[in-house]
Amino acid sequence: MTEAVLRTERLTKHFGGLAAVSDVSLGFFIDQIHAVIGPNGAGKTTLTNLVSGELASTSGHIYLDGEDITGLSADRISQRGVGRSYQKTNIFLPFTAFENCRLAAQSRLPSSMRFIRPALRYDNVSREALRALVEVGLEHRAQAPAATLSHGEQRQLEIAMTLATRPRILLLDEPLAGMGGEESARMVELLQKLKQAHAMLLVEHDMDAVFALADRLTVMVNGNVLESGTPEQIRASAAVQEAYLGTEDAHA
């Protein structure tokens, strides 16, 4: 197999005495959706925050294209091609959908310390922003203020912003959260399309979607990796049945 776009090596995060993430070693590849599942508090979002640089790890390493990026700030990690979306919609509500994506695309200018030329005249930036909107199917809402978008559209916008930064790996924290059936189906389709050009870490609670989408699954419990493998392997795993899937099924 080709080399991993992103790899974590014994990544660990302690909050006080609590190990939120411990000894997590995973690899993420182009054309592969790598879903991370687990009960609440398993450390999935913490793992995402560690990789995106929004939290500093206690120990362990993160490699992007073989280069150690451990300890870099969130903005630098983003610049190197890690794009993330948030569990709780995290967009610029007063701005239009287009401006949200335009700001995201503008971050790829060598510097935004540009004071004279109007931002809208940077055609490459505008083109990228529009491309991202088209990619998620939101171009018809481009001029609508983000605050007026429906919940599903806001989730799409969230992904579009991430895409506008041209990342190599996408960290998607519950992109389907709170979506209706039709919206969910569209998002699943989108993710399938996106995986061709991106490595992907997908944190998701919707098990149907996860098993439909994932090429690789990692089950986390209490900060530890319980099992990691293909969906078939995970389905067959006794440990997973016991610790997670069984109870989840009982819930559903």
Binding site: E54, D75, S112
Partner: peptide, 11 residues
């Protein structure tokens, strides 16, 4: 509007 998001966009 959202400084944290700006950082995660790479600013």
């Amino acid at each position: 509007v959202n400084e944290q998001r700006m950082r995660s966009l790479g600013y």
